[in-house]
């Protein structure tokens, strides 16, 4: 299981839980299983989310490995100029 931190306004989609746990060994499984477990997350996941794994931000690389001991934080998809 991976413990995932959900940002404040998105916690409405996780029954107001700041941390949720899902089975995932990579970024894609994380998104898939979050969508399954918390269907209200789906609109935001479809629009785009990044994930920070131990402080390093990944924008969309699905097969980035995630381990149970990693700190995993969901973030909105990064934009820049």
């Amino acid at each position: 299981m991976v413990k995932v931190r959900i940002w404040g306004s998105l916690q409405k989609a996780t029954d107001n839980k700041e941390f949720v746990e899902v089975e995932a060994q990579n970024f894609k499984q994380l998104l898939d299983n979050l969508s399954l477990k918390y269907p209200k997350l789906k609109p935001q996941i479809t629009r785009g989310v990044s994930v920070a794994i131990d402080g390093m931000i990944y924008r969309n690389s699905w097969f980035t490995p995630i381990k149970p001991e990693n700190e995993v934080v969901l973030m909105p998809y990064m934009v820049g100029g």
Binding site: R5, W7, A52, D54, G55, M56, I57, E71, V73, L74, M75
Partner: peptide, 9 residues
């Protein structure tokens, strides 16, 4: 623990 969530390396 950064203001946007992750812990800084």
């Amino acid at each position: 623990k950064s203001s946007y969530g992750p812990t800084f390396d």
